[in-house]
Amino acid sequence: MMELLAKIAFAVYTLLILSGGCIAVGAHSLIRAMVGLISSLLGVAGMYMLMAAPFMAFMQILIYVGAVCVLIFFAIMLSRADEHGVESGSKRPGKAALSALTFITPTFVIGYMLVKFQPESINIPIEIPLAAVGKGLLEDYPIAFELISVVLLAAMAGAVLLAYEPKGRKGGKV
């Protein structure tokens, strides 16, 4: 029974991740794209919970959903949109096809890898102590710890770029 519930939760989180990614890539409004990003990141946090890693799930919510998405939200609020609320301007005909290709390509690559190289299933996940996670991040795998700072730096740079308005251009788009 527990295995069935875990498979259902896995399917729900997978659906949340994929649908959020589709919304984030295909939305014309930056607010809708951010909502898609948030739902996708919350699905990833749910996957961490399924892997019995509650600390990683909390960090996923705190760092990515909390910090990065709030920073993007402030950048959106500082940027100027047209009167219809569409920040991306006119619709390009190939944008839907490009976003579909962006979604389908990784799905097929990951699916092919999973079918070709069947991973061994573990019935009961092992909970790793928090001290071991901290030690691993700071001693054995410091590059993963440093990449979190790079993500936050990229989010800040994107926020500044979205909010930037050159002198002499009032009310116009960048």
Results as ranks from 00 to 15, higher is better:
residue 117 F to R: 05
residue 78 L to H: 12
residue 122 I to V: 12
residue 52 A to P: 02
residue 91 K to S: 12
residue 172 G to K: 15
residue 156 M to G: 08
residue 129 P to N: 08
residue 3 E to A: 14
residue 106 P to G: 09
residue 89 G to N: 02
residue 5 L to H: 12
residue 89 G to L: 04
residue 70 V to S: 02
residue 150 V to K: 06
residue 136 G to F: 02
residue 51 M to F: 04
residue 69 C to F: 09
residue 47 M to C: 13
residue 171 G to Y: 03
residue 20 G to I: 02
residue 90 S to T: 14
residue 37 L to R: 01
residue 41 L to S: 09
residue 89 G to P: 06
residue 36 G to A: 08
residue 50 L to M: 04
residue 16 L to Q: 11
residue 70 V to Y: 04
residue 116 K to G: 03
residue 9 A to K: 05
residue 102 T to E: 05
residue 57 A to S: 04
residue 124 I to R: 12
residue 52 A to Q: 09
residue 158 G to L: 04
residue 89 G to R: 04
residue 70 V to C: 01
residue 81 A to S: 14
residue 149 S to E: 10
residue 93 P to D: 12
residue 89 G to S: 07
residue 25 V to S: 12
residue 92 R to Q: 13
residue 96 A to R: 08
residue 129 P to F: 05
residue 102 T to K: 01
residue 174 V to F: 08
residue 66 G to D: 01
residue 56 M to Y: 00
residue 84 H to V: 01
residue 150 V to R: 01
residue 48 Y to C: 05
residue 13 Y to A: 00
residue 70 V to L: 04
residue 78 L to G: 07
residue 17 I to M: 14
residue 26 G to Y: 00
residue 48 Y to N: 06
residue 103 F to Q: 07
residue 118 Q to F: 14
residue 46 G to P: 07
residue 110 I to P: 15
residue 152 L to E: 15
residue 47 M to D: 08
residue 144 A to N: 10
residue 96 A to F: 01
residue 139 E to R: 13
residue 105 T to A: 14
residue 52 A to G: 03
residue 173 K to W: 03
residue 22 C to L: 14
residue 14 T to R: 06
residue 71 L to Y: 13
residue 117 F to I: 01
residue 144 A to Y: 15
residue 12 V to C: 02
residue 160 V to L: 13
residue 170 K to V: 15
residue 138 L to T: 01
residue 64 Y to K: 10
residue 36 G to P: 10
residue 67 A to E: 12
residue 96 A to Y: 04
residue 24 A to Y: 00
residue 153 L to P: 06
residue 59 M to N: 05
residue 85 G to L: 05
residue 167 K to A: 15
residue 7 K to H: 13
residue 21 G to H: 03
residue 7 K to I: 11
residue 18 L to A: 11
residue 162 L to F: 13
residue 60 Q to L: 06
residue 98 L to P: 02
residue 142 P to S: 08
residue 89 G to H: 02
residue 171 G to Q: 08
residue 156 M to S: 10
residue 138 L to G: 10
residue 135 K to G: 06
residue 37 L to A: 05
residue 135 K to D: 08
residue 88 S to V: 12
residue 65 V to Q: 00
residue 122 I to W: 11
residue 87 E to R: 13
residue 22 C to N: 09
residue 163 A to M: 08
residue 12 V to L: 12
residue 135 K to Q: 13
residue 85 G to I: 02
residue 155 A to N: 09
residue 161 L to Y: 10
residue 32 R to T: 13
residue 11 A to L: 09
residue 163 A to D: 07
residue 104 I to S: 13
residue 108 F to V: 11
residue 94 G to Q: 12
residue 39 S to H: 08
residue 31 I to N: 13
residue 83 E to Q: 07
residue 131 A to F: 02
residue 96 A to V: 01
residue 78 L to A: 13
residue 173 K to N: 09
residue 97 A to F: 10
residue 52 A to M: 06
residue 153 L to V: 15
residue 89 G to F: 03
residue 10 F to N: 02
residue 125 P to C: 03
residue 75 A to P: 03
residue 14 T to I: 07
residue 133 V to N: 01
residue 132 A to S: 11
residue 168 G to F: 01
residue 61 I to M: 01
residue 95 K to S: 11
residue 39 S to R: 07
residue 144 A to R: 12
residue 62 L to I: 15
